[in-house]
């Protein structure tokens, strides 16, 4: 039947590999099921790579680090880029990275919205879950694939610009003790990018799973991000001054948790810029365990929320 209808056959296009329009069974190779979640990740990453908004945010993050690079270039070296009296000399390079990371956190939140808000919500709207889960794929494969796609999307923007700055510093300041002072700096950059990406990816995927529209998921995540952030900042303030670094309540919000992680990972209580506004006494490092615990809670809550909602069929119990 299909043979008669196809114009390609009528035109004699018999050389085409699809000129034979009869149904044939597939008897080719099949890949191992273990890496099938990666197919789901690729389905998240492919459209993301064509999203102009995503690359615009990446460009803005890069611009911020180009600003850092220009500051270093025009001030003649990394020693002058930070406040020498406030920052431990052995952490002067990390201080620059920490300072400029602070400027990119808002852009990373926007990247999370662009990459993650529609990740599962769009599938819910188009009933795509039925398509995914009618294949030999578990709920875990689907969730891992979605999470990893969103994580990698955020991680690329979070890690690439500071890595570019690191490459510049490595090339320009190797003779000024860049490697001897901060041998682990590249790992700190990658670890912080990974933590930030994991928190954003888990929460946005969790929210997206409960929504049927990308816009709704974006609004909910923005509400949680900003309202919780504002409340926590107000609660943790020390009168009219910002909270000191060792006051743990400020790390309860998403933004606060990311700030705390950045301080822990760069091993600095405050950034080079912020230190000039601090009071006279030396700032104390926040405790690591509570901040790591808060980050873990955010990640687990997000993933658990998504897992609870991912179903091939909606079962309404009578």
């Amino acid at each position: 039947m299909a043979n008669q209808q196809n114009p390609a056959t009528e035109m004699g296009a018999s050389v085409s590999p699809i000129a034979d329009l009869t149904y044939r069974n597939y008897d080719g190779p099949l890949l191992n099921r273990a890496a099938r979640w990666w197919v789901v990740s690729l389905a998240v990453l492919r459209p993301m790579m064509k999203n102009k908004g995503y690359w615009a945010m990446g460009g803005l993050c890069l611009l911020i680090y180009i600003g850092a690079l220009m500051q270093l270039y025009f001030t003649g070296g990394i020693q002058d880029a930070v406040n020498p009296g406030q920052i431990d000399k052995s952490h002067k390079y990390a201080s620059v990275f920490l300072s400029y990371f602070g400027f990119t956190t808002l852009f990373l939140y926007v990247v999370a919205l662009i990459v993650g808000a529609g990740s599962i919500a769009a599938d819910n709207k188009a009933n795509a879950m039925m398509i995914y889960l009618s294949k030999p794929l578990t709920k875990g494969d689907y969730l891992l694939g979605k999470w990893m796609g969103v994580f990698l999307g955020i991680f690329l923007i979070a890690a690439a610009p500071p890595l570019a700055l690191w490459v510049y510093c490595a090339g320009s300041y190797a003779g000024q003790g860049f490697f001897s002072n901060e041998p682990l700096l590249i790992f700190r950059v990658l670890l912080l990018a990974a933590f930030v990406s994991a928190i954003h990816a888990s929460l946005i995927v969790g929210i997206s799973a409960w929504c049927k529209a990308q816009r709704i998921a974006s609004v909910i995540y923005s509400g949680i991000y900003f309202i919780l952030g504002t409340i926590i900042v107000q609660v943790s303030r020390d009168g009219w001054r910002p909270a000191p670094p060792d006051r743990l309540v400020q790390y309860l919000s998403i933004q606060g948790c990311i700030d705390g992680l950045s301080k822990l990972i760069y091993d600095l209580p405050t950034s080079g810029f912020a230190s000039s506004f601090q009071r006279g006494e030396a700032p104390k490092m926040p405790s690591a365990l509570p901040i790591l615990l808060i980050a873990a809670v955010y990640i687990v809550i997000g993933i658990a929320a998504a897992r609870a909602k991912i179903k091939a069929v909606e079962v309404v119990k009578g």
Binding site: V40, A122, A126, A128, I131, Y132, P136
Partner: peptide
């Protein structure tokens, strides 16, 4: 039902990949 943001050939190919096809 369909997987959003895809043309038909990409969608059907993705369905095949989900079943393990290279």
């Amino acid at each position: 039902c369909h997987i959003p943001g895809m043309n038909a050939v990409t969608f059907v190919a993705l369905s095949g990949e989900l079943c393990g096809m290279p």
